[in-house]
Write a protein that binds this DNA or RNA. Structure first.
Lengths: 209, 209
DNA sequence: CCGTAACTTGAGGACCGTTTCAACTTTCAC
DNA sequence: GTGAAAGTTGAAACGGTCCTCAAGTTACGG
């Protein structure tokens, strides 16, 4: 870990502006937003953006890292919830709520942008929390025994997909969708599943599009 | 309905080749595949493609129309299934299987390409069949009473989204996902839903991205 | 076999987003 | 202050896809 020399005052200010603009742009338009637009919004030339952030990924990391942190905090809070089912539901709901709020963060969840160390770290932590919470719920008999964390990943992936479609029209539609789907994860609902769950490594290699 | 004069022999042959190439390309790479690539694959210049198909939509309609027809047939067969729950499950499974097979058709389901009369007609028919099948299942008490066709649309939308991620890695993953989700639609699983269903018109206006 | 209408061709213009870089400007340590 | 290092700038090169159109080719009725 090399200690980076501090940025010059004006450069630091520009960096700050860029991150802010990126935050806003990613949130509203997703990760595909043109970098030129972010630079313009930040009141800075495109070259400056490239000066500070070598790749889109670095900018994403800087802009959305805090949100990923927030996701971890929420998951930790969920893990502390007494009722195991409620803990599980909170995990899913809180995560989805963040995705619903921020198109960029939703894209991160799916697209695996490269060059995002802080986000990657947060994702890893989330994975662990998810496993813990699901294990507890299963042990308590409130979550069907045959679902794995990878199943939840797929389910949330799917719900995030519907958000893209409904965000402008019915921003809360995902809540109904999620409730419906969660009902399928209760033990009373359980019917045999046709195939085994995705392995963690399969999920890791899952790529969109 | 103007009776189009028949194409010249060579033109008809080229058209055929284009449709075939488009079928293949859409299936494998989705609707965003460059038209140039389709033309190349068809052994024809790009200008010829534009000669025959004024827009991407027209080509999509020609290439994927038959698949949409097939979807309707499958849905009609599902509607004829005696067991109301099985009918419902077949509807969902058969539809999803088509999407899993054909990235392009999956894209059609989400993106509402314009200029696709035959596909649009098929979709309308599918909508009606879905309503019928779901109504029957509800009447039989095998489908929870508080789900609407728009809910199924959202659910399938979501599953189609996960297909994009898993197609190359675990082409059947959607079967497990769907089973899980369908379990949430059974009456035994029902817990109160937080918000009302999407209206049909809301769904119609739903746009991706 | 011919003439014409139908068709094909592919280079090129338009647009868009990315990325680079040489010339210019600003900061800051001394 | 001053000069070197740090930073900014935006035009331009680039790669990709869309779409057009003038020139050339082909089919087919007579």
């Amino acid at each position: 870990m090399t200690t980076a020399r501090p940025l010059r005052q004006d450069a630091a200010r520009n960096r700050e502006r860029l991150v802010l603009a990126a935050c806003e742009a990613f949130r509203r338009k997703g990760l595909d937003v043109p970098l030129e637009e972010i630079a313009r919004e930040a009141g800075v030339a495109i070259g400056t953006l490239y000066n500070r952030f070598a790749s889109r990924g670095e900018l994403v990391d800087a802009a959305l890292g805090p949100l990923a942190q927030r996701a971890v905090e929420l998951a930790e809070r969920a893990a502390r919830t007494e009722d195991p089912w409620q803990a599980f539901v909170s995990l899913a709901e809180d995560t989805c709520a963040l995705f619903a709020d921020d198109r960029g963060y939703a894209d991160v969840y799916r697209s695996r942008v490269s060059g995002t160390p802080v986000i990657a770290a947060a994702q890893a932590r989330l994975l662990a929390l998810k496993a813990t919470i699901m294990a507890r719920a299963k042990r308590a008999g409130v979550l069907r025994a045959d679902v794995e964390p990878t199943d939840l990943a797929l389910i949330i992936w799917g719900i995030v997909g519907t958000m893209d479609a409904t965000r402008d029209i019915a921003p809360d539609a995902w809540r109904r969708h999620l409730s419906l789907v969660l009902d399928g994860l209760r033990p009373q609902a359980a019917h045999p599943l046709p195939i085994p769950p995705l392995t963690a490594s399969q999920l890791r290699n899952a790529a969109p599009k």
